[in-house]
Design a protein around this nucleic acid. Structure first.
Lengths: 218, 218
DNA sequence: GTCTATAGATTGATAGAC
DNA sequence: GTCTATCAATCTATAGAC
């Protein structure tokens, strides 16, 4: 029961390795060596590799999504007080900002940002199941509020545009401050505030654009 | 040298499995059993699992990117003939449309669409190296042409907005027609034409939005 | 080209001493 | 709670018969 430093060391090491190498490619031996604990410690403290993976998401994604839900609720309540519906920009900000700005920029949180970015896409069954369970309630609220904010858009358009935003955010979380992507010319790393504003503006413009303005191909 | 049906069967089976399960999670046994060939056949025909993975990308991503490069060149030449610079929409269409509309919608191409969507994010070293090598020349041209089309935007803005588009496209390729994502309410699968137009409009609006229109947080 | 058989390494997990 | 030692399964790759 005690605080068990070992448990935290395992969580931190595994978070970093899963982010860098992926779930499948990371072995228990790699985790325990990096955490400088015994090989058997993971099974003792967590039960299995899969349970460890789940614990990592519970530790960070759950509180992150709670923050997002709380902000969405505040936005909704505030708008209602004025008899309005929430602005698209505020909804998207509540979704994007907490994901890119963890309170502290400690290493663990940078690792986890990368891990989430990867998990949005990675279809490893283990990852997907855990990830979806934690994301689903938030997605439901997002789709609902975006529909209210943009009543002229059909539900399909809302759904897909929300997916586009999710993809853009995932890509950003995946490459921002990620040493593996230094080969791309990200030599101009912006500060996180600019990046957040940049993505929000992009997302708002895309989300609010009128439909049906097709154009001939090629 | 002969056409070797075995080789194609392996490519098709591996493409599907890599798309569904990921590179690391897919074993040689799973591939050869699915392809109904002998376990040793992969090493005989391709040399190694990694070389097989590379062959899959060479078979589809290379021609896909050649199509995109060709269309970008046509757009550029056509604009030059009129003393203009290419429109953002046309550039983005050349990038997005070929990726979502393979000539035939054969199963293999659906699998590969999913595989590319995954590979944009997946950081497995093997996948990244191969994927980057094939994507880099295209990215260079895209960034160049987008800079011409949007001269008022600083290079960093161009770079990040391009990444947002890449993320949105990757997410779309990942979930469109993917049975694993049926749990999400994609019960309203749009036809591919609508989806393409939808993503292009979203991307154009995001790409062209003026910078600096910040807003207070929360 | 295709097959069987197997080498050689690595995996997640656990039993049992301390 | 931590450790050593090890099991049983699985992996990629290859040698060699046909």
């Amino acid at each position: 029961m005690g605080h068990s430093d070992t448990k935290q060391q395992i969580l931190n090491a595994a978070e970093s390795l899963f982010a860098r190498e992926g779930y499948q490619a990371t072995s228990m031996r790699a985790i325990t060596e990096s955490a400088r604990v015994n090989l058997a410690a993971v099974n003792y403290h967590f039960g299995s590799k899969e349970a460890l993976f789940e614990a990592i998401f519970e530790r960070r994604l759950r509180p992150l999504n709670e923050v997002r839900q709380k902000r969405l609720k505040e936005i909704r309540d505030e708008a209602r007080r004025h008899g309005l519906t929430p602005a698209t920009r505020e909804i998207l900000r509540a979704f994007i900002e907490p994901a890119l700005r963890f309170k502290e920029s400690r290493k663990g949180e940078v690792d986890f940002t990368i891990l989430i970015g990867r998990s949005f896409i990675d279809s490893d069954d283990t990852a997907q199941k855990i990830f979806f369970r934690l994301m689903k309630p938030l997605s439901r609220v997002m789709l609902e509020m975006l529909s209210e904010a943009l009543p002229e858009l059909p539900r399909e358009a809302i759904f897909w545009r929300y997916q586009f935003v999710v993809g853009a955010l995932a890509r950003t979380m995946r490459i921002y401050k990620n040493p593996k992507f230094e080969s791309m010319k990200v030599n101009h790393e912006p500060d996180v505030d600019s990046l957040i504003d940049s993505l929000i503006s992009f997302a708002v413009a895309g989300m609010e654009t009128p439909i049906g303005q097709k154009q001939s191909a090629v």
